Every structure is written in C-alpha cells, then in structure tokens.
Amino acid sequence: MSVPEWVGDIPTWIGAGGALGAAWFAYQTITSQRQQIGEQQVFIADQTQFMDEQRQNLELEREELRAVAEDRRTAQAKRVKMHSRKAGASTDGQGVATPDDHWVVTVLNESDAPIRQVEVRFGSAYNSAEVYEWNTGWNLAGGPRSSDRLLQLVDFIGPGRAVRFESQRYSSAAVHNNRPVLFFSDENDARWALSARGNLGASRQEPGNPPPAE
C-alpha cells in the first residue's frame, strides 16, 4: 500500500514536529522568564518601598534624638531669668517729671545648678555700673540693695540666687537704644546670651569682653 501524497514524507513530519516542539519550549521559556522578571520587579518595588519607609523612620528618629539633645543642651539656660526695667523717673523741685535715665536688671537662676561668668551689657559697648546681690524674696521691680557689692563680671550665681545689675545713667534716648543683654555660662561651660525681649541663643562672647562682630 502506498502512502497518500497529502501525508508527505516521514522526515518532513518529524522535522515539523521538532520545530513545533522547539517553538513551544521557547514560548514556555519566554513566558517563564517574563513571569520571573515580573516577580523580580514586584520584589524590587517592595524592597524599595520598604527601604524608603526605613529611611523615613530613621530620619524621624534622628530628628527626635536631635530635639531631645537640644532640649537637654538648653534645659538649664532656659531656667535663667532676666527682669529688666527703666528707672530713674522722678520729679524735680518744681514738680516736673524727669525721664528714666538708666536700666535696672535682676538676674535669677531658677535652675538646679550654678551659672558662671555672668555679666550684663547695655547696648554693644557699656558694662554694668553697679552690681549687687539680690534677695529673691524681694519684688523684682523694687526692694533695697544688699550691702554686698559685686564686680561687673559675677563669677558664680548659685541655684535659686539672684543678682541685680544697674547701668550707668544716660539720656532718655540713650537708655532706649542701649537695652540690656545677659551673658552667662552654664554648668557645661556653654556660653549663652539672653536679650531683654527674652531671646535666648548661643554666644561667642568671651567673659569680660564685648561680643565679636558678626
């Protein structure tokens, strides 16, 4: 019996079957590779998101640590208070009011540790004219002076203690233009400046010397 012509020869069919198998294998391989690439892309995306979240968490932790360190660094300095007022207004013999002509500044150490090298400067060039120990039971705006007069640069103010600084006498315009600034060192020898408006900041001023020009 002869083989029908539409069947073709056997080698051709074998070759066609092999080609079909190879094509199917290649298709399966490509499909598998695409699936693996897709899974790898998903994995990489997940890892990238995880790493980004970790980075954000680390940044938050660093910010919190910096905030804690800053609070610890400024804790004592924030408990040093300065009360300042203009003084000297009175009336002359004819009942005419005279203007305020000097500053009176009371420095109170409310912290639990001493502060050192304490001084008050008025404007950029004037030292205190008179410095006295101060009784914290007295009103900050009044009260008598103690008999203990101190140097312009007070070496030590203990916890709960106060010192009063007074400026020299100026014209009324000069009083306004020469507001007091308190300089002191905390227990860690960090140097601070506290303005009459309550602004606290680190200072490069050396004790006994004017602040360096910015």
Results as ranks from 00 to 15, higher is better:
Phe25Arg: 02
Asp9Met: 10
Leu153Ala: 09
Asp46Arg: 08
Glu63Gly: 07
Glu214Cys: 02
Gly143Thr: 10
Thr29Tyr: 05
Ser90Ala: 14
Ala162Trp: 03
Thr106Met: 09
Gly201Ala: 12
Arg121His: 14
Ala67Met: 01
Val7Pro: 00
Gly15Arg: 12
Ile37Ala: 07
Asn127Phe: 06
Asp101Lys: 14
Ile44Met: 05
Gln168Lys: 11
Glu206Leu: 08
Val163Gln: 01
Phe122Glu: 09
His83Met: 11
Asp52Lys: 15
Ala22Arg: 06
Gln117Tyr: 06
Val104Thr: 12
Val7Tyr: 00
Ala141Asp: 14
Gly208His: 08
Arg169Gln: 14
Val107Ala: 05
Trp103Ser: 12
Ala67Trp: 04
Phe183Glu: 07
Val131Pro: 02
Phe183Tyr: 12
Ile37Trp: 06
Arg169Gly: 11
Ala97Val: 13
Asn139His: 10
Glu70Trp: 03
Val175Ala: 05
Gly208Leu: 02
Asn199Pro: 05
Leu65Met: 11
Leu200Ser: 06
Glu39Ala: 07
Val181Ala: 09
Ala141Glu: 14
Asp101Ile: 12
Pro4Ala: 04
Pro144Lys: 01
Trp6Phe: 05
Gln168Ile: 02
Arg62His: 07
Arg169Cys: 08
Gly158Trp: 00
Gln33Ile: 04
Ala89Glu: 15
Met51Tyr: 01
Arg121Phe: 01
Arg191Phe: 00
Arg79Ala: 11
Gly142Lys: 01
